[in-house]
Structures are given as C-alpha cells and as structure tokens.
Design a protein around this nucleic acid. Structure first.
Lengths: 128, 128
DNA sequence: GTGATAATGATAATGATTATCATTCTGACT
DNA sequence: AGTCAGAATGATAATCATTATCATTATCAC
C-alpha cells in the first residue's frame, strides 16, 4: 500500500547521495537546489514512509529526527556536544549485552538507541 | 547563583516521593494536588535547575524530557512501546564498552543515553 | 477507463519547551 | 532596618518540529 512515488524517490536519492544524517529541512532544501522542490509536509511523510519500508534509517535525537542511508551495517552514534557532528561506531558486544538485559527482564526487544555525548577530537583541539 | 527556592524545593519533594519518571505536566499537576501550585514556566525552569545541580536526573525521550530521583545508582531504561512503562536496568559492562568506544574515537565522553525499546512482560500477556 | 486507495501540498493546528517582561524575592553589605 | 544586584516567578507570547486537515491529483487493479 505504501507507494514509492517520484517525490519519495527524489528524497531517497538525496539521502543516498551522502553519508550525512539529514533532518527534514535539510532534505527539503537539497530538493529545492536539485530542481525537484517538494512540499515540507510531503517530505516529512516521505521520510517516515521510507524509514518504515527500511529504505532509510532514522535516528531520534533530542530535538529532532534525522535520517541516513540504510545500506550500511548497523551502528550507533557519537555526538559532539560542541559542534554537533555525528560519528558512527559499531560494537557488537554492546548489542549482545543489550539482548541479555532484555531477556533478564522478560522484555521482547524491538530496537534500541545508544547515543554517546562528548567532545570530538577536532573540538578538543580548538578549545584552548 | 542557582537558588533552591521554596518552589524548587516543592518540585524536588514531589519527585523524591516516588520512583516515577515525571514529565513537566505531571509535576505541575502533582503540585496543584499538593496545594502548592506553581506556574508551568517555573516548573520547567525548576526542573532544569535541579537537574543541573544534580538533585534530580533527567532522561530525554523521543518527544519529551522526564525527570526522576537522583539518589539511585546509575541505570539505563527499557521502554515498553505498547504501554509506555519505563523499567530500569544496570549493566556496567556496557558502560565499560562505551568508554572503550569513546577512546577508540578520541572522543571525550560526557554522557550517554541508552534506551531499549520493546514489549514488556505485562503487555506480552495481554496481547494474545 | 473507472473506482478505490494513497499521495500531494498549502496551511492550520498541536504540543513541548523557551523567551519576554514586569514584578517580587533573596542575600550580602552598609 | 535599608539598599542594591542578581535571581526567580508567573502569565503569556513565541518558537520549532511535527502532524492533521482537506481539497485535489496520481496510481493501480480490474
């Protein structure tokens, strides 16, 4: 029932073009630059639909949702509280421990979100 | 410079009275019940101030912030996507791995947020 | 090619949170 | 006690991401 329309294809193309973590406004802006402007409500709906179909990944930050390409292996995120930059990491041992925790609590795990906050190496330098 | 005023003391008392994870509205409602009604803006500021002073803990969920007592040992949260219930868990091995990840990325870690989403044991039963 | 179903886009509405601003409180110091 | 500066308060407006509404248009199955 979910359709992959021209607009959603355009959104998907934008997101697949880079490793960025996009928010809705950034996607809308990129689409305008691209001469395929799409209404902001449609961008929101398109992002939600694409994420539901697994064609893109979503991460929920404190204030907003961001979306990224889905054709990467699973990872979590390091977020610099200074510059806002988002790095990715992968630590399967953590996932295993999460599954253990869930089973200890008779909890059927559906997903997780792990964010590490701190100062990235670039901002550490510039601080002084 | 941050002051622990009567209003903030009242907010703190409400939160310390239970193991709940409170949002601002719930705190405001409890204060009204308590015959110490406080303006909603003041509740928000009070919660932020108390969290900054370490007198309460805050957790950032998708849509809103929630606050809980600070006099417990560190833990993370299991969130039932059906009933919204929040359980707590403690797994120091995960924290250690997080520190390891951070150091691998030359990242000075300041904090983290780990949420596990799924179905709690109660909702599993009632679903059939 | 005709319905049924879904998508679009402009705009209004929502909901949590923050900003504004006039007023009041607090604590330190005369 | 009196004064002054810095905070806090509370009512309300503003903000910002997101969702709802609704009339219109596109899409797909038959």
């Amino acid at each position: 029932m979910q359709k992959l329309t021209a607009q959603r294809q355009a959104i998907l193309d934008v997101i697949n073009r880079s490793d960025k973590h996009w928010d809705a406004d950034e996607v809308a802006y990129a689409l305008k630059e691209n001469d395929t402007p799409i209404g902001i409500a449609t961008v929101y709906r398109g992002l939600a639909a694409l994420a539901e179909q697994g064609l893109i990944e979503s991460i929920q930050l404190a204030d907003k949702k961001r979306y990224e390409r889905a054709d990467k292996k699973h990872h979590d995120h390091l977020i610099c509280t200074d510059c806002g930059d988002i790095e990715e990491f992968c630590k399967p041992e953590i996932e295993k421990l999460q599954d253990l925790v869930a089973s200890e609590h008779d909890f059927t795990i559906q997903g997780h979100q792990l964010l590490l906050f701190g100062i990235c190496i670039r901002c550490k330098g510039k601080g002084i």
